[in-house]
C-alpha cells in the first residue's frame, strides 16, 4: 500500500490536494477561504493530469530532428486539458470574487453563516 503510494507519489499528492481543497470548499465559513479551497482542488486535478501526461525521458511532440517514432514523444492532450482547465478555473474564480465583493457590500461580512443570519432579517420574505 505505502509502496504503491510512494511510486505514484505525484498522483497521491494530487488526490491529497484535491481532498484538502474539497474540505476547505465545504467547511470553511469564509467565502475567500472557500475560493482558495476551490483553487487548490482544481490544482490537484491539474497536477494529476500533468503527471499522467508526462513520461520520463520523452519529449514534447514537436519533430525537429527527424525522429518519427511515437515512443520518443509524450501525449500532448493532457497538457492541453490542463491549459483549458486553468482558463476555466481562472474565469470561475473571477466571477466568484466579484460575487464576494457584491456580497460584502451588502452585508459587510464574508462569513457565510453571518450573512445567512442577516438575510433572514430582511423584509424581502413575502
Amino acid at each position: 500500500m505505502i509502496e504503491t503510494l510512494l511510486t505514484n507519489y505525484e498522483e497521491a499528492a494530487a488526490i491529497i490536494l484535491f481532498g484538502i481543497g474539497l474540505t476547505m470548499l465545504l467547511f470553511q465559513r469564509n467565502l475567500i477561504k472557500k475560493l482558495i479551497g476551490m483553487n487548490i482542488m482544481d490544482t490537484g486535478v491539474f497536477l494529476f493530469l500533468a503527471s499522467m501526461g508526462y513520461i520520463e525521458g520523452r519529449r514534447a511532440p514537436i519533430i525537429t530532428d527527424g525522429i518519427q517514432d511515437v515512443n520518443a514523444y509524450i501525449n500532448p492532450v493532457p497538457a492541453g486539458l490542463v491549459l483549458t482547465g486553468i482558463v476555466v478555473s481562472v474565469s470561475v474564480t473571477a466571477v466568484m470574487l466579484s460575487l464576494s465583493i457584491r456580497l460584502y457590500k451588502r452585508y459587510h461580512t464574508l462569513d457565510l453563516d453571518d450573512v445567512y443570519i442577516l438575510s433572514r432579517h430582511q423584509t424581502e420574505d413575502r
Partner: peptide, 11 residues
C-alpha cells in the same frame, strides 16, 4: 441581497 446569497450558495 437574497439573489446574491442564493447565487453564492449555488455557485
Amino acid at each position: 441581497g437574497r439573489t446574491t446569497l442564493a447565487a453564492v450558495r449555488y455557485m
